[in-house]
Design a protein around this nucleic acid. Structure first.
Lengths: 135, 135
DNA sequence: ATAAATGCAAAACTTTTGCACCCGA
DNA sequence: TCGGGTGCAAAAGTTTTGCATTTAT
Protein backbone atom coordinates (compact mmCIF):
# COMPACT_ATOMS: atom_id res chain seq x y z
CA UNK A 1 0.00 0.00 0.00
CA UNK A 2 2.66 2.49 1.00
CA UNK A 3 4.71 3.82 -1.87
CA UNK A 4 8.21 4.67 -0.68
CA UNK A 5 9.50 5.48 -4.15
CA UNK A 6 7.94 8.93 -3.87
CA UNK A 7 10.44 11.72 -3.33
CA UNK A 8 9.08 13.89 -0.58
CA UNK A 9 10.39 16.29 1.99
CA UNK A 10 9.33 16.53 5.57
CA UNK A 11 7.62 19.86 6.07
CA UNK A 12 5.94 21.38 9.07
CA UNK A 13 2.71 21.77 7.11
CA UNK A 14 2.50 18.17 6.07
CA UNK A 15 3.30 17.01 9.57
CA UNK A 16 0.54 19.08 11.13
CA UNK A 17 -2.02 17.99 8.56
CA UNK A 18 -1.34 14.34 9.23
CA UNK A 19 -1.27 14.90 13.00
CA UNK A 20 -4.68 16.52 12.91
CA UNK A 21 -6.17 13.82 10.77
CA UNK A 22 -4.74 11.16 13.07
CA UNK A 23 -6.21 12.87 16.12
CA UNK A 24 -9.81 12.54 14.94
CA UNK A 25 -12.14 9.87 13.72
CA UNK A 26 -14.56 12.33 12.17
CA UNK A 27 -13.52 11.63 8.57
CA UNK A 28 -13.27 15.35 7.94
CA UNK A 29 -13.37 17.28 4.70
CA UNK A 30 -10.41 19.19 3.32
CA UNK A 31 -11.95 22.42 4.50
CA UNK A 32 -12.42 21.18 8.06
CA UNK A 33 -8.77 20.15 8.13
CA UNK A 34 -7.79 23.54 6.73
CA UNK A 35 -9.58 25.36 9.55
CA UNK A 36 -7.95 23.15 12.16
CA UNK A 37 -4.47 23.58 10.71
CA UNK A 38 -4.93 27.35 10.64
CA UNK A 39 -5.27 27.36 14.42
CA UNK A 40 -1.68 26.15 14.62
CA UNK A 41 -0.36 27.77 11.47
CA UNK A 42 -2.47 30.76 10.46
CA UNK A 43 -0.67 31.45 7.21
CA UNK A 44 -1.15 28.06 5.62
CA UNK A 45 -3.05 28.11 2.37
CA UNK A 46 -5.92 25.93 1.32
CA UNK A 47 -3.98 24.89 -1.76
CA UNK A 48 -1.25 23.48 0.45
CA UNK A 49 -3.76 21.45 2.38
CA UNK A 50 -5.17 19.99 -0.81
CA UNK A 51 -1.73 19.31 -2.23
CA UNK A 52 -0.59 17.56 0.91
CA UNK A 53 -3.71 15.48 1.23
CA UNK A 54 -3.13 14.17 -2.29
CA UNK A 55 0.54 13.50 -1.55
CA UNK A 56 -0.22 11.76 1.74
CA UNK A 57 -2.82 9.68 -0.01
CA UNK A 58 -0.31 8.67 -2.68
CA UNK A 59 2.18 7.86 0.09
CA UNK A 60 -0.42 5.61 1.65
CA UNK A 61 -0.65 7.58 4.88
CA UNK A 62 -4.33 8.27 4.53
CA UNK A 63 -7.38 7.23 2.58
CA UNK A 64 -9.59 9.42 0.44
CA UNK A 65 -13.20 8.44 0.96
CA UNK A 66 -14.92 9.62 -2.18
CA UNK A 67 -14.35 6.12 -3.50
CA UNK A 68 -13.07 7.43 -6.79
CA UNK A 69 -14.95 9.96 -8.85
CA UNK A 70 -15.10 13.73 -8.60
CA UNK A 71 -18.60 14.02 -9.97
CA UNK A 72 -21.76 11.98 -9.70
CA UNK A 73 -22.66 9.24 -12.09
CA UNK A 74 -26.15 7.93 -12.63
CA UNK A 75 -27.60 4.50 -13.20
CA UNK A 76 -31.14 3.58 -14.18
CA UNK A 77 -30.57 0.03 -12.97
CA UNK A 78 -32.29 0.30 -9.62
CA UNK A 79 -31.96 -3.34 -8.65
CA UNK A 80 -29.36 -3.64 -5.93
CA UNK A 81 -26.07 -4.44 -7.58
CA UNK A 82 -22.36 -3.75 -7.39
CA UNK A 83 -20.00 -1.73 -9.52
CA UNK A 84 -16.50 -2.20 -10.72
CA UNK A 85 -14.43 0.88 -11.62
CA UNK A 86 -11.36 0.46 -13.78
CA UNK A 87 -8.53 2.52 -12.35
CA UNK A 88 -6.91 2.78 -15.78
CA UNK A 89 -9.68 3.67 -18.23
CA UNK A 90 -12.25 4.86 -15.69
CA UNK A 91 -15.03 2.68 -17.00
CA UNK A 92 -17.74 1.62 -14.55
CA UNK A 93 -19.17 -1.85 -15.05
CA UNK A 94 -22.11 -3.56 -13.39
CA UNK A 95 -21.24 -6.72 -11.52
CA UNK A 96 -23.62 -9.65 -11.63
CA UNK A 97 -23.17 -10.83 -8.09
CA UNK A 98 -26.07 -11.45 -5.76
CA UNK A 99 -26.27 -8.80 -3.07
CA UNK A 100 -25.50 -10.16 0.36
CA UNK A 101 -28.24 -8.80 2.55
CA UNK A 102 -27.03 -10.85 5.49
CA UNK A 103 -24.11 -8.42 5.72
CA UNK A 104 -26.56 -5.61 6.45
CA UNK A 105 -28.18 -7.64 9.18
CA UNK A 106 -24.86 -8.57 10.75
CA UNK A 107 -23.76 -4.93 10.85
CA UNK A 108 -27.14 -3.74 12.10
CA UNK A 109 -27.07 -6.28 14.89
CA UNK A 110 -23.51 -5.45 15.87
CA UNK A 111 -23.83 -1.65 15.84
CA UNK A 112 -27.46 -1.06 16.68
CA UNK A 113 -27.75 1.21 13.67
CA UNK A 114 -30.61 1.04 11.22
CA UNK A 115 -29.16 0.07 7.86
CA UNK A 116 -31.15 1.27 4.86
CA UNK A 117 -28.78 -0.10 2.26
CA UNK A 118 -25.15 -0.59 1.53
CA UNK A 119 -23.10 -0.14 -1.56
CA UNK A 120 -20.00 -1.93 -2.59
CA UNK A 121 -17.53 -0.80 -5.17
CA UNK A 122 -14.62 -2.73 -6.60
CA UNK A 123 -11.53 -1.06 -8.04
CA UNK A 124 -8.82 -2.51 -10.23
CA UNK A 125 -8.08 -3.22 -13.88
CA UNK A 126 -10.73 -4.29 -16.35
CA UNK A 127 -10.18 -7.05 -18.88
CA UNK A 128 -8.79 -4.81 -21.60
CA UNK A 129 -6.55 -2.69 -19.39
CA UNK A 130 -5.14 -5.78 -17.68
CA UNK A 131 -3.62 -6.89 -21.02
CA UNK A 132 -2.23 -3.51 -22.00
CA UNK A 133 1.40 -2.79 -21.11
CA UNK A 134 1.90 -0.44 -18.19
CA UNK A 135 1.95 3.18 -19.26
CA UNK B 1 -37.54 2.44 -2.40
CA UNK B 2 -39.89 4.34 -4.67
CA UNK B 3 -41.57 7.33 -3.10
CA UNK B 4 -44.99 7.87 -4.62
CA UNK B 5 -45.89 10.70 -2.25
CA UNK B 6 -43.86 13.10 -4.38
CA UNK B 7 -45.95 15.51 -6.40
CA UNK B 8 -44.48 15.56 -9.85
CA UNK B 9 -45.64 16.34 -13.34
CA UNK B 10 -44.84 14.34 -16.40
CA UNK B 11 -42.71 16.50 -18.66
CA UNK B 12 -41.07 15.81 -21.97
CA UNK B 13 -37.68 16.70 -20.51
CA UNK B 14 -37.89 14.28 -17.63
CA UNK B 15 -39.10 11.53 -19.91
CA UNK B 16 -36.21 11.94 -22.33
CA UNK B 17 -33.64 12.07 -19.54
CA UNK B 18 -34.88 8.81 -18.09
CA UNK B 19 -35.13 7.21 -21.53
CA UNK B 20 -31.54 8.06 -22.30
CA UNK B 21 -30.27 6.79 -18.99
CA UNK B 22 -32.21 3.56 -19.47
CA UNK B 23 -30.75 3.05 -22.90
CA UNK B 24 -27.15 2.87 -21.69
CA UNK B 25 -25.12 0.98 -19.16
CA UNK B 26 -22.28 3.50 -19.19
CA UNK B 27 -23.14 5.07 -15.82
CA UNK B 28 -22.84 8.50 -17.38
CA UNK B 29 -22.24 11.86 -15.75
CA UNK B 30 -24.82 14.63 -15.73
CA UNK B 31 -22.94 16.41 -18.49
CA UNK B 32 -22.89 13.36 -20.73
CA UNK B 33 -26.65 13.03 -20.27
CA UNK B 34 -27.07 16.72 -21.02
CA UNK B 35 -25.25 16.39 -24.34
CA UNK B 36 -27.35 13.37 -25.31
CA UNK B 37 -30.61 15.08 -24.40
CA UNK B 38 -29.64 18.12 -26.44
CA UNK B 39 -29.58 15.99 -29.58
CA UNK B 40 -33.30 15.44 -29.12
CA UNK B 41 -34.16 18.72 -27.43
CA UNK B 42 -31.58 21.40 -28.24
CA UNK B 43 -33.04 24.04 -25.93
CA UNK B 44 -32.90 22.06 -22.74
CA UNK B 45 -30.77 23.62 -20.04
CA UNK B 46 -28.16 21.96 -17.89
CA UNK B 47 -30.00 23.10 -14.79
CA UNK B 48 -33.05 21.17 -15.89
CA UNK B 49 -30.98 18.04 -16.32
CA UNK B 50 -29.56 18.38 -12.82
CA UNK B 51 -32.96 19.14 -11.31
CA UNK B 52 -34.56 16.15 -12.98
CA UNK B 53 -31.78 13.79 -12.04
CA UNK B 54 -32.29 14.73 -8.39
CA UNK B 55 -36.05 14.35 -8.69
CA UNK B 56 -35.79 11.00 -10.45
CA UNK B 57 -33.37 9.85 -7.79
CA UNK B 58 -35.82 10.89 -5.06
CA UNK B 59 -38.56 9.09 -6.95
CA UNK B 60 -36.43 5.97 -6.95
CA UNK B 61 -36.19 5.79 -10.72
CA UNK B 62 -32.42 5.96 -10.77
CA UNK B 63 -29.40 5.71 -8.52
CA UNK B 64 -26.78 8.34 -7.92
CA UNK B 65 -23.40 6.67 -7.74
CA UNK B 66 -21.33 9.09 -5.71
CA UNK B 67 -22.33 6.97 -2.73
CA UNK B 68 -23.29 10.02 -0.74
CA UNK B 69 -21.02 13.01 -0.40
CA UNK B 70 -20.27 15.84 -2.76
CA UNK B 71 -16.72 16.36 -1.57
CA UNK B 72 -13.95 14.08 -0.44
CA UNK B 73 -13.43 13.03 3.13
CA UNK B 74 -10.18 11.78 4.53
CA UNK B 75 -9.26 9.09 6.99
CA UNK B 76 -5.90 8.38 8.58
CA UNK B 77 -7.04 4.88 9.47
CA UNK B 78 -5.37 3.01 6.64
CA UNK B 79 -6.27 -0.49 7.78
CA UNK B 80 -8.96 -1.85 5.47
CA UNK B 81 -12.27 -1.13 7.10
CA UNK B 82 -15.84 -0.14 6.35
CA UNK B 83 -17.82 3.02 6.90
CA UNK B 84 -21.31 3.81 7.97
CA UNK B 85 -22.86 7.12 6.91
CA UNK B 86 -25.88 8.40 8.78
CA UNK B 87 -28.44 9.71 6.31
CA UNK B 88 -29.86 12.05 8.93
CA UNK B 89 -26.93 13.73 10.63
CA UNK B 90 -24.29 12.97 7.99
CA UNK B 91 -21.80 11.49 10.43
CA UNK B 92 -19.38 8.87 9.12
CA UNK B 93 -18.47 6.11 11.53
CA UNK B 94 -15.86 3.36 11.25
CA UNK B 95 -17.23 -0.15 11.37
CA UNK B 96 -15.31 -2.84 13.17
CA UNK B 97 -16.04 -5.68 10.84
CA UNK B 98 -13.36 -7.87 9.34
CA UNK B 99 -12.89 -7.19 5.67
CA UNK B 100 -13.99 -10.08 3.51
CA UNK B 101 -11.18 -10.59 1.04
CA UNK B 102 -12.78 -13.71 -0.33
CA UNK B 103 -15.33 -11.44 -1.98
CA UNK B 104 -12.56 -9.86 -4.06
CA UNK B 105 -11.39 -13.29 -5.14
CA UNK B 106 -14.87 -14.43 -6.06
CA UNK B 107 -15.45 -11.33 -8.19
CA UNK B 108 -12.01 -11.53 -9.77
CA UNK B 109 -12.59 -15.14 -10.71
CA UNK B 110 -16.04 -14.47 -12.10
CA UNK B 111 -15.19 -11.40 -14.17
CA UNK B 112 -11.56 -11.91 -15.07
CA UNK B 113 -10.78 -8.42 -13.80
CA UNK B 114 -7.85 -7.64 -11.57
CA UNK B 115 -9.24 -6.38 -8.26
CA UNK B 116 -6.96 -4.02 -6.36
CA UNK B 117 -9.37 -3.35 -3.54
CA UNK B 118 -12.98 -2.82 -2.78
CA UNK B 119 -14.81 -0.48 -0.53
CA UNK B 120 -18.09 -0.94 1.19
CA UNK B 121 -20.27 1.75 2.60
CA UNK B 122 -23.39 1.36 4.71
CA UNK B 123 -26.13 3.96 4.84
CA UNK B 124 -28.96 4.38 7.33
CA UNK B 125 -29.67 5.91 10.72
CA UNK B 126 -27.12 6.01 13.51
CA UNK B 127 -27.98 5.23 17.12
CA UNK B 128 -28.93 8.76 18.07
CA UNK B 129 -30.93 9.60 14.93
CA UNK B 130 -32.81 6.32 15.13
CA UNK B 131 -34.36 7.44 18.43
CA UNK B 132 -35.20 10.96 17.32
CA UNK B 133 -38.72 11.58 16.02
CA UNK B 134 -39.03 11.94 12.27
CA UNK B 135 -38.49 15.52 11.14
C1' DA C 1 -56.27 28.47 -12.11
C1' DT C 2 -52.25 27.28 -9.83
C1' DA C 3 -48.28 25.31 -8.71
C1' DA C 4 -44.65 22.53 -10.77
C1' DA C 5 -41.18 22.80 -14.20
C1' DT C 6 -38.33 25.23 -17.57
C1' DG C 7 -34.56 28.19 -19.68
C1' DC C 8 -31.18 31.29 -18.81
C1' DA C 9 -27.57 33.14 -16.33
C1' DA C 10 -25.31 34.14 -12.25
C1' DA C 11 -23.55 32.25 -8.17
C1' DA C 12 -21.83 28.85 -4.99
C1' DC C 13 -18.59 25.46 -3.90
C1' DT C 14 -14.88 22.27 -4.06
C1' DT C 15 -10.58 21.47 -6.08
C1' DT C 16 -6.66 22.56 -9.13
C1' DT C 17 -2.98 25.34 -10.94
C1' DG C 18 0.50 29.07 -12.35
C1' DC C 19 4.04 31.63 -10.46
C1' DA C 20 7.47 33.73 -7.70
C1' DC C 21 9.66 32.86 -3.50
C1' DC C 22 11.24 29.73 0.26
C1' DC C 23 13.47 25.96 2.46
C1' DG C 24 14.77 21.00 3.49
C1' DA C 25 18.20 17.58 2.36
C1' DT D 1 22.79 24.07 -4.49
C1' DC D 2 18.51 22.39 -6.27
C1' DG D 3 14.29 20.73 -6.79
C1' DG D 4 10.30 19.96 -3.91
C1' DG D 5 7.05 22.83 -1.18
C1' DT D 6 4.53 27.06 0.01
C1' DG D 7 1.41 31.10 -0.19
C1' DC D 8 -1.42 33.71 -2.89
C1' DA D 9 -4.73 34.34 -6.20
C1' DA D 10 -6.87 33.19 -10.29
C1' DA D 11 -9.04 29.57 -12.76
C1' DA D 12 -11.43 25.35 -13.60
C1' DG D 13 -15.15 22.33 -13.06
C1' DT D 14 -19.39 20.58 -11.17
C1' DT D 15 -23.69 21.61 -9.14
C1' DT D 16 -27.16 24.85 -7.33
C1' DT D 17 -30.27 28.70 -7.47
C1' DG D 18 -33.03 33.14 -8.45
C1' DC D 19 -36.30 34.75 -11.50
C1' DA D 20 -39.51 35.47 -15.07
C1' DT D 21 -42.04 32.51 -18.13
C1' DT D 22 -44.16 28.32 -19.63
C1' DT D 23 -47.00 24.34 -19.05
C1' DA D 24 -49.16 20.06 -17.06
C1' DT D 25 -53.05 18.85 -14.40
Amino acid sequence: MKDSTLKTRRTKQREIILDILRSTNLHPTADWIYEKVRQKMPNISLGTVYRNLKILRDMGELIELDCGGAFSRFDANIRPHYHFTCQICGKIIDIEEPVHHEIEEAIAHKTGFEIAYYCMGFFGKCGRCKEAPAA
